[in-house]
């Protein structure tokens, strides 16, 4: 399935090793997904990619591939007032699965 969006591999500044790493480890392949990660988990993303300065630079590059409307649309979705409730308890302490 071709994900809708702007492929990271087509954005100058995202070298192919980085693109492959994001795809294989996180399943992140589009500028939209990268910007989403930067918004939701900036600290963890910076830790993974070797520092805040480099990561924020990459986030700006990814954002530059998106139109103003696309960024606004993502922001609207992030701020959705739908509750997105969950409700499945974790496995007993010390266990990874049930």
């Amino acid at each position: 399935m071709q994900k809708a969006g702007h492929p990271l591999r087509e954005i100058a500044g995202f070298d192919q090793n980085l693109v492959a790493r994001l795809r294989d480890e996180l399943s992140v392949t589009t500028a939209e997904e990268f910007v989403g990660l930067w918004h939701s988990s900036p600290v963890e993303l910076s830790n993974m990619l070797g520092g805040e300065q480099r990561t924020s630079g990459l986030a700006l590059l990814a954002k530059s591939a998106l139109s103003k409307e696309e960024i606004e649309s993502l922001t609207r979705s992030e701020n959705s007032d739908y509750p997105f409730k969950t409700g499945h308890e974790a496995p007993p302490s010390g266990k990874q699965t049930f």
């Binding site: 994900k3 399943s27 939209e32 997904e33 939701s40 963890e44 922001t75 979705s77 992030e78």
Partner: peptide, 14 residues
């Protein structure tokens, strides 16, 4: 993530 809420492609945790 706004894009996951739009497109539904869940990503692997960092």
């Amino acid at each position: 993530s706004g894009i996951v809420r739009q497109r539904g492609n869940i990503t692997v945790p960092l």
